[in-house]
């Protein structure tokens, strides 16, 4: 338990940011028109690909001899970038279709 309190006191700034970001996310999406639900879901999905930054950090930190870490990191980067590139590209296509209809 003490460890957790220590963790909180050391990362207080992080926790402030976390809570503020939760509220920003809620405010940004409130009152979005129904037609935009699917593109928005797709756009948010592309954003969640930000996990690729962590995958790159894993590879940057691993020892060149540590094949397991490098291999897993490599797969993580590939999957993450598919999420990012594919996600933004699909969202763009959806919105294009949406524009034509209007």
């Amino acid at each position: 338990m003490n460890q957790f309190i220590e963790f909180i006191s050391q990362n207080l700034e992080l926790i402030y940011i976390l809570i503020l970001a939760i509220f920003i996310g809620v405010e940004l999406i409130k009152n979005v028109p129904t037609v935009l639900h699917t593109p928005l879901m797709s756009g948010a999905n592309a954003l969640s690909g930000v996990v690729i930054v962590g995958a790159i950090i894993v590879m940057l930190q691993s020892d060149p001899e540590n094949y397991l870490a490098l291999g897993l990191g490599f797969v993580a980067v590939v999957l993450g970038i598919i999420n990012v590139v594919g996600g933004f590209a699909v969202t763009d296509r959806m919105l294009q279709m949406f524009k034509k209809k209007k």
């Binding site: 970001a21 939760i22 920003i24 996310g25 999406i29 409130k30 639900h37 879901m41 969640s48």
Partner: peptide, 11 residues
């Protein structure tokens, strides 16, 4: 991540 987390939940 948190933006997607909270916005995704509201969505």
């Amino acid at each position: 991540g948190i933006l997607v987390g909270s916005a995704g939940l509201i969505l």
